[in-house]
Amino acid sequence: MADAATAVAATEMTVEMIKASQIGMKALGAGLAVGLTGIATGIAEMAVGSAAVGATAENKDVFGLVLLLTVIPETIVIFGLVVSLLLLF
């Protein structure tokens, strides 16, 4: 019964509808790629940032170095952004 209903629905879908659905799925994938990598970057930067602030509090000379280390997890979200751009364009 269910199979028959699906078959009927599939036959009723137009090419435009399928294309629109694909664009929607792409947008969803792109959103997930940026969103999830953003969360991962945040978690990674939490640890690196805490250590960086701790180290800078004791020795101000290391500020430049720890700043660089703190932004290294940003690469994760940049990968996510690249993937999402590839998906979209």
């Binding site: 640890a47 940032g49 805490s50 602030v53 701790g54």
Partner: peptide, 16 residues
């Protein structure tokens, strides 16, 4: 509430 205060203080101790 997360491990960041631990990381902060343990890093300070390590630097000291």
């Amino acid at each position: 509430g997360g491990p960041d205060p631990y990381i902060y203080v343990c890093t300070r101790m390590r630097v000291r």
